[in-house]
Design a protein around this nucleic acid. Structure first.
Lengths: 241, 241
DNA sequence: CGTCACTTTGAAAGCTTTCAATAGGAGTGG
DNA sequence: CCACTCCTATTGAAAGCTTTCAAAGTGACG
């Protein structure tokens, strides 16, 4: 649109590919000379404080970003899916830890390579900028969720967000543990569990197994989760850092 | 440092100018052809959803960024001070509302002008990138605060962060209302007030007036606020969007 | 000096957490 | 193939912290 280059671009990204399927769309960023890496569940991609040297694209699996307090309390900043980028940052060090939630396949390249690409291509800058601003937007949404919503609303938000990320699917696979969800929503695992049960009893969702949720009343859930952006917004491609 | 250009730069900004003083340092961004604007307390700089057309630099005063739920519940994402930028964003629309907390003086230019400047200058891109990543870092810190800290710790975090922004001052002017603080910390005004009183009774702070706090035991407060980055970090210049 | 807005304080209620115990499933070994 | 163990999720009951509802205190302003 405007000449703002990487500052203004937003709707620039490719087709609104829903992940969940693994090798779904083409890479948001051409990671030339990329190497692949395979991780088991709970393996660390990088640690908060680590020198940021590589950027990763998730090919398969789910990754969580988190931060810790000195006493061990944890915040899961978000979950990243296939197609998302991990490890982007401006400083020399990561400001959060990234860990595999499931077995993960990563394709990565040096941060400096991506930097060079960005330096040479306004289009790449535009895409990266778009990614970063979506991250800010999403994080701000989470701030509203944690600061002002009840447990029921928080869980609804989580489910609705996950659903939207997967093309508004109503059948949701929840690869992360209750602990991960709790740390993401600022609740305890017991409260997450109880809330899910409550939703089930109300007929809002079905829970065939702890890691599979089926949204029976997406609209009702959406109302509970009203924190998120209006639904007419273009599907936002998550990403990472 | 590396060739990552606007992707990696971080410590690039000028002297760690503490704001609070008004025209303290030179502008982070050269806003050529900038126009000035004067606002009263509670005036709106821009609204969430507005077309993003201008970027503002705060010359004087304090601004709050906030988001609302449909039913009126509010989250104050943060407070911005002289020297900070307002209105930066990648999309066509603002993702939050900016309002004056105190009377404010703004210097602003068209977003497209800044865009052009960025497109032409790698150094500008670097600075902007640094700003954006600091915003992400700060917002993530807030997520940990809201998700995992008690009322006492949240208020301590707030005071410590404010103190650090002002060059580790122990005499803090709190221009914002208890409501603003509460919405920023995910608490009620009563809890904020009670917590402040509790800190006063414990001898952690003094409160000569509702809008003036004096940190009597900065170290104890810092311990309570352990969520924030270690104190040896370079003073981070806040900013905005 | 009265009004208004904001802050502080008090008391009860409520929601989430904490502590504990009971299910459920996957993997291992007999 | 079944028993046993371990880990995670669910459920229950009591405790706790924050909120809600109310009222009193404080300061600015006309």
């Amino acid at each position: 649109m405007s000449a703002l280059g990487y500052l203004t671009s937003i709707g620039s990204s490719g087709a609104p590919v829903a992940h969940g399927g693994e090798g779904a769309g083409m890479s948001v960023l051409p990671l030339e000379g990329a190497s692949c890496r395979r991780l088991d569940a709970d393996d660390v991609v990088f640690l908060e404080g680590d020198e940021a040297e590589r950027v990763h694209e998730i090919v398969q699996g789910v990754v969580r970003l988190c931060r810790l307090l000195p006493d061990g309390r944890r915040a899961v900043l978000g979950f990243r899916h296939p197609g998302d980028l991990l490890g982007l940052c401006s400083g020399g060090r990561h400001d959060c830890t990234a860990e595999a939630v499931t077995p993960v396949v990563l394709r990565s390249c040096r941060l400096s390579s991506l930097a060079a690409l960005a330096e040479a291509s306004a289009e790449t800058r535009r895409r990266l900028s778009s990614l970063v601003w979506r991250e800010i937007d999403a994080t701000r949404t989470n701030l509203l969720v944690l600061g002002r919503m009840s447990a029921l609303e928080r869980v609804a938000s989580f489910l609705v967000a996950l659903s939207r990320q997967h093309g508004h699917a109503t059948r949701l696979h929840l690869p992360m543990s209750r602990t991960d969800i709790a740390d993401h929503l600022g609740l305890t695992i017991e409260t997450v569990s109880r809330t899910l049960t409550q939703m089930r009893r109300r007929g809002l969702i079905a829970l065939p197994s702890p890691h599979l949720a089926i949204l029976l009343c997406p609209d009702a859930l959406r109302d509970l989760a009203a924190a998120d952006e209006p639904d007419d917004a273009a599907p936002r491609r998550a990403w990472a850092a």
